[in-house]
Amino acid sequence: MSGIYWIASYPKSGNTWVRMVLRSLEQGGAPVRFDDDNAPWWDPSHRSRIGGISSSRFFFEDVLDIESSDLTEDEIETLRSAAILAWAESAGKPPIVKTHDAWLSSRGTPLFPPESTKGAVVIVRDPRDVAVSFANHSGISIDAAIARMADPDCRLARTSKKMGSQLAQWLPTWSGHVAGWLDAPVRRLLMRYEDMKADTPGVMAKIAAFLEFDTTSETVNKAVDAARFDRLQAEEVRSGFRERPAVSSRFFRRGVAGGWRDTLSRQQAERIEADHGAMMRRLGYETTT
């Protein structure tokens, strides 16, 4: 088994950006296209190492030979590990898969069997910026986003009636989510969104090396340029982006670090710091209180 590399993060933390740079990097710095995949990413005929999201409903159904809409939430949670393990056994060159799942499932067992995991790039972002972006992405108020980030038992893409392209993902608090991945017994590379912004080529080169890309700094520079935020925005206008939720007008919205300063009220910032101060300090985010 070659094992899977996870790009793990809480939602709205830069996960997709990293994936887009890697896609370009894999093709020697070529322009990023959202609609150029013919074979599904879990299929052996998919040439790229870079896959979609771990919570894909169609990945689950294909690997398990079953309709997810016939299953209960408990059955799905149990079977997701089985699907990941079975796929890891058959996958070729170590695939790279995005995930917003917590390391542990809601019942406290690892969702990702450690033996199927080769490593994890863990991406974190200042939770004050996450709150603003998460609110926009989910079509909820900033206060509601802050409340979700403090809710130890939240579900992402949970729906009892309408089936989306993703399975429900258990989402603990923002701090709990980060802590779970930082404590996971796997090889790991921790990266901050803010550092990616400040020195994109430097950080992306480290990520590429961790993920066993054989590349040069020149190609990394080209890939970083190809996945520039304004280019991703333009590509979203051109072809749409399938992970954009219906409630949000754009997936690639702003892409800045520290934007919370002109968006959050003082009370909102303080609430996030009260909820997540310990983890923020552990990651080197300055708190105002």
Binding site: V63, D65, L79, L85
Partner: peptide
């Protein structure tokens, strides 16, 4: 051998939902 499905050499299939 797939997580829920087994296929024998002669083509017999077994599917199990726990």
């Amino acid at each position: 051998s797939r997580p829920l499905l087994q296929i024998a050499d002669d083509g017999t299939c077994r599917f199990e939902m726990k």
